[in-house]
Design a protein around this nucleic acid. Structure first.
Lengths: 200, 200, 200, 200
DNA sequence: CATGAATGAGGCTTCATTCAT
DNA sequence: GATGAATGAAGCCTCATTCAT
C-alpha cells in the first residue's frame, strides 16, 4: 500500500519558497544541535511554518538531512571548481582551493557538523561524498605528477592527507576559533605542503 | 537526567568483572550503531547482564560513553608515549607515532566512530581530547623547531595538519579498507611530511 | 468535524460530473483500502481532481462514505424489486432474488467491503440498512406463511437466516473465488432452503 | 538493525498477569470502539497500566489484535469441539453447536466486532479463520452425507450457509437485541435447517 | 468551480531510567 | 549485587480539513 501523500517537488512559487525556508532552517538546527538532538519541531519553528508543512516537502528527518548535505556538497565542489578554473600551477591551485574552502566554511559555519554526522545518519551519503570528492582530487594530483610538476607519491595517499589537513585546520580556526583565515596563514599552510618540515 | 543512586565503584571482584563486561560491550555497540542509535538494552544484552545492572555501575548513557572514550584516549596516548620513548630525531618520532597510532586503530576498530561522536555527546569531552593531545604535540614540535631540527612553522598549525593526516589516512586505510598499514606506506607518508610535494 | 462550507449540490453539468467522479473513485478506494486506511487524497488522486475540490461536494470523509453506501443500497434494493416484480411463487421469488443479488455483487465487487465497514463508520447507517432491508423481507415472508405457501416460522428469524446465507455465499464464491454463480449452483441453494437437510 | 526491545513472553508471574490484563482490556476496547478508532492509550488505561507497558508485551496495535483474535478463535473452536463430543446424530450436533456458539457469544459480546474487523486489519488472519473453521465443518457434513444421514448437497455450500446463519442470527439476537437465546428459539432454527420452508 | 499549500490535533512508538523483589 | 517489569516524557509522522488564489 503505497504512500498517498507522496512528497513531490513544489508546484508553485510559494511552495518553493517554503521548501527553501525549511532547508535553511535545517542547516542551522542540525548544525547547532546535531542531527539526533534536533527535532522536526525545532526545524519548523526555526522556519516559522507548522509541523505539518514539513511533511509536504520532506519524507522524514533523514530525507531533509540528505538533501541538505548533498546540496551543500554540490555547492562546495562547484565553488572550488569555478574559483580554480584556469589555474595551471599545482601549488597555486592548492592555495586557491584552500582559500575558497575556508571562505565557504565561513559562510556555512555548520558544514562540518553536518558532514561529520552524515556517517551516523546515512553511511552511503558519507561514502559517496568522499569518493566523489577524492576522485577529482586524486586525478588532478596524478596529472601534476605525470607532468613532473610535483614530486611523485601515491596520489590517493596525498589526496587524503590534503583532505585531512583541510578538515582539521578548518575545524580549528574557522569553526572553533572563528578567526578570519588570512592569506599569510594560507601561505604558511601551502609552504608546509610544498616543502615539508625537513630542513633543506 | 535525575539520579538517585550514586554511581558505584565496584567493591568486589565480581563487580569489577561486570563493569568491564559493560565497557567492552559499550565499545562494540556504540561503535557499530553509534551513540544515539544504540540503546542501554543493546549494551546490557551484549554484556549479558540485566538492564538494572547497568545503573549499578554507570549513571547514564552519557556516563559510560564518557568513561569509555576517556579510557581509550588515555590508552592511546600512553601507547604512543611508551612507544616513542627515547626517540630523539623528530622525523623518526613522527614515523613511530604514525605506526603506533595505526596499530592501535587496528586493535580498536571503533575508535573513530567513538571519537567522532564525542562532539555530539559531550562537547567538553571532545574539546578536552583535542586540547590535551595537541598540547603535547605542539610543544614537542616547538622544541624541535627551536633546536633547528625542522623548519619553523606555526607549531599549532603543524600539529593540526599532522592530526588531520592521521585521522584521514587512518579512516581511509584502516577503518574503510581494513588494510594492514605497511612500513613502506608509512615511509611514504613520512616522506611527504618531510619533503612536501615541491620538486627539490 | 467543523464545517464552514455547506455541501453543494452541483449546479452545472461539469459539477455533476466531478461529483460522480469522486463517488466512483471512493467506491474503488474504500473498497480496496478500507475506510480507515483510505485517505481523502487517495480518493481525489483516483478521481484526478485536487484536494480542495472534494470539499466542494462532500462535507467529510464520513459524508461521502454514507452517500456511497446509501446509493448502493438503494440501487441493490431497486434491482431486486424490479427483477422480482410479478413473481408470485415464494420459492421462485427467492431463487430470482439470489440470482439478482449475486449479479449485483459481480458488478460491484466492493459492495461487501463497503457494507461491512459501515458498522464502524456510522452505526446508524448500518442499522438502518438492515432494518429497511429486513423489514421488506420479513413482511414478504409473513404474507407467504399466512397464505400457507411456506411453512410457518418466526419470519424475522427466517429473514436473517436468508440474509446470512446470501452474505456468506456471496462472500465465498463471488468475492473470494470470483466464480460465476451458475443457475445450477443457485438451484442447489434454493433446494436446501426449500427442503432442508433432513431426509424426506 | 534489529529491534533491541524484542517482545518476549513474560518471564515472571507478574508479567503474565499484566499481559493478560492488556488482552482483556483490548477485547473490551476494540469491541466497543473498533480497531481503528481505538488507541493504545485506550487499552492501557482500561488495563490500568502505563503506555510503555503495552510495548513490553506487544509490538504494535496489530500485534495485540492478532493475538486476541487468534486466541478467541481457538477458544471458540475448542468449546464447540468439547461440547459436541460424543454426539453422533447430525441434527443434534448442529443444535448443540448453535447453542454453544450463542453461549460463547454471550460471554464474549465483542467477538463479532473483532472478527468482522479482522478483514481490515490483517487479511491473512481473516482468511485463515474461515479456512480452518469451514474445513472442519465441511468434512463433518460430508461424512454425514456419505452415511446417508442427511440429504446430499455440495458440503462446502452447506457449511457456508450454516456459518452465515450463525453469524446473522447471533448478530441480531445476541449482539443487538441482547436476548437470551432460548432452547425454543434454537429448536425453531434447527427445524428450518432440517425441513426447509417448503410444505411437506 | 478548481487548486494545492498550510495547518495542527491526534496517535504510534521508543527507550532512558526507576524500583520492588 | 543482580534482575526485569513498569514508567512516561519525548519525538516522529499522518491526514482531515481550511483557505487564499
Amino acid at each position: 500500500m503505497k504512500k498517498s501523500y507522496a512528497k513531490l517537488e513544489p508546484r508553485t512559487q510559494r511552495g518553493m519558497k517554503t521548501k527553501q525556508k525549511l532547508l535553511d532552517a535545517a542547516e542551522i538546527v542540525f548544525g547547532e544541535k546535531g542531527f539526533h538532538q534536533a527535532s522536526i519541531v525545532d526545524i519548523t519553528q526555526q522556519a516559522k511554518v507548522s509541523m505539518g508543512t514539513f511533511y509536504t516537502y520532506f519524507e522524514s528527518k533523514e530525507d531533509i538531512f540528505r538533501e541538505l548535505v548533498m546540496s551543500m556538497q554540490k555547492n562546495m565542489r562547484k565553488a572550488i571548481k569555478i574559483g580554480t578554473q584556469g589555474i595551471t600551477d599545482r601549488i597555486e591551485l592548492e592555495r586557491e582551493g584552500f582559500r575558497i574552502f575556508f571562505q565557504f566554511l565561513q559562510k556555512h559555519r555548520y558544514l562540518y557538523r553536518l558532514f561529520r554526522q552524515a556517517e551516523f545518519v546515512d553511511v552511503e551519503l558519507h561514502r559517496s561524498y568522499f569518493e566523489t570528492f577524492s576522485r577529482g582530487y586524486i586525478s588532478g594530483l596524478q596529472d601534476s605528477m605525470e607532468k613532473g610538476e610535483i614530486r611523485a607519491y601515491n596520489p590517493e595517499l596525498l589526496a587524503y592527507c590534503f583532505m585531512g589537513i583541510m578538515d582539521y585546520v578548518g575545524m580549528k580556526w574557522v569553526l572553533w576559533e572563528q578567526q578570519e583565515v588570512t592569506d599569510e596563514f594560507i601561505d604558511e599552510l601551502v609552504c608546509f605542503i610544498k616543502n615539508g618540515i625537513g630542513k633543506p
